[in-house]
Computed example of a mutant assay.
Amino acid sequence: MQVVSGDGFSGWHALNDTVMGGRSSGSCSVSSRGLRLEAEVVEQGGGFVSCRSPVFSPPLDLSDQAAFELELQGDGRHYKLAVACADGVAGLTELIPGGVRWVANFATSADGPCRLRIPFEQLRPSIRAKPIDALPLGLPLRFDAARITRLQILHSKFGDDGSANPGFRAGPLLLELMAIHAVT
């Protein structure tokens, strides 16, 4: 099932570390080929650049799927896919600044286009690059594939487990994302 491809990435926009005082600059552009993230990554003061979708309304229902599949042209860096879900726990996660994101690392190759599979079961809850297991009240978190509200692609100095990203590199960056599919 195709989630987005080609010029269907319209409305995606950059969100970079400047929101927290960093100095990285990145932009997202869309063509018939797909989404292009071009950036200059600066580690000091933040160390991340990203492109994120608009909020999906109504949320995407991918409950009959098991994974995301990304078609992309990478640059040898490690990136993260971040997924936001509508909150089924009385809206509590929406009260957390930045909200809960379900994230997974993936490595890219600079050798040409590739397809990467990210199973839903590999997505881990995180708040601003810090992994979490439960909400402040001890309520457990659960990825809800039936209520996906936003997708984001990031290059960050932090991996999905909160440790250093082994594929992080400051400097110029270029990633092309041709499509995101949901697959069984």
Rank of each mutant, 00 (worst) to 15 (best):
1 M>S: 02
1 M>R: 03
1 M>A: 09
2 Q>C: 00
2 Q>R: 11
3 V>H: 04
5 S>K: 12
6 G>C: 06
7 D>P: 00
8 G>H: 06
10 S>T: 15
12 W>P: 06
13 H>K: 14
14 A>Y: 00
15 L>A: 03
17 D>E: 07
17 D>S: 01
17 D>A: 11
19 V>K: 00
21 G>E: 03
24 S>H: 01
25 S>L: 01
25 S>K: 13
26 G>C: 11
27 S>Y: 14
31 S>W: 04
32 S>K: 06
33 R>I: 05
35 L>F: 11
36 R>D: 01
36 R>M: 13
37 L>N: 12
37 L>H: 05
39 A>G: 06
40 E>S: 04
40 E>Y: 15
40 E>K: 11
41 V>F: 11
42 V>T: 02
45 G>D: 01
46 G>P: 14
51 C>W: 09
52 R>G: 01
55 V>E: 02
55 V>P: 00
56 F>K: 05
58 P>Q: 09
58 P>R: 13
59 P>G: 01
59 P>I: 04
61 D>N: 03
63 S>A: 03
63 S>K: 01
66 A>R: 15
72 L>Q: 07
73 Q>E: 05
74 G>A: 07
74 G>K: 13
74 G>Q: 00
76 G>H: 02
77 R>L: 11
77 R>V: 09
78 H>G: 10
78 H>T: 11
79 Y>F: 00
79 Y>H: 09
80 K>S: 09
80 K>M: 12
81 L>A: 08
81 L>R: 04
87 D>K: 14
90 A>C: 08
90 A>D: 11
91 G>P: 08
91 G>H: 02
93 T>L: 08
96 I>V: 15
97 P>S: 10
101 R>G: 15
103 V>N: 08
104 A>C: 10
107 A>W: 00
108 T>E: 12
110 A>L: 07
111 D>Y: 03
111 D>T: 02
113 P>K: 11
113 P>F: 11
114 C>M: 11
114 C>L: 05
116 L>M: 10
120 F>I: 02
121 E>Y: 11
122 Q>S: 14
123 L>A: 12
124 R>Y: 03
127 I>F: 02
127 I>N: 07
129 A>N: 10
130 K>A: 09
132 I>H: 09
132 I>A: 15
133 D>W: 04
133 D>Y: 12
134 A>R: 09
135 L>F: 09
138 G>E: 15
139 L>W: 05
141 L>G: 15
141 L>K: 13
144 D>I: 07
147 R>H: 06
148 I>M: 12
149 T>G: 09
149 T>K: 03
151 L>P: 14
153 I>Q: 08
154 L>A: 15
156 S>G: 08
157 K>A: 00
160 D>C: 12
162 G>D: 10
164 A>E: 15
164 A>M: 13
166 P>R: 12
168 F>V: 12
170 A>D: 05
170 A>I: 06
171 G>W: 05
172 P>W: 11
173 L>Y: 14
174 L>W: 06
174 L>N: 13
175 L>C: 10
176 E>R: 13
178 M>Y: 15
178 M>N: 15
179 A>E: 06
182 A>E: 08
182 A>G: 03
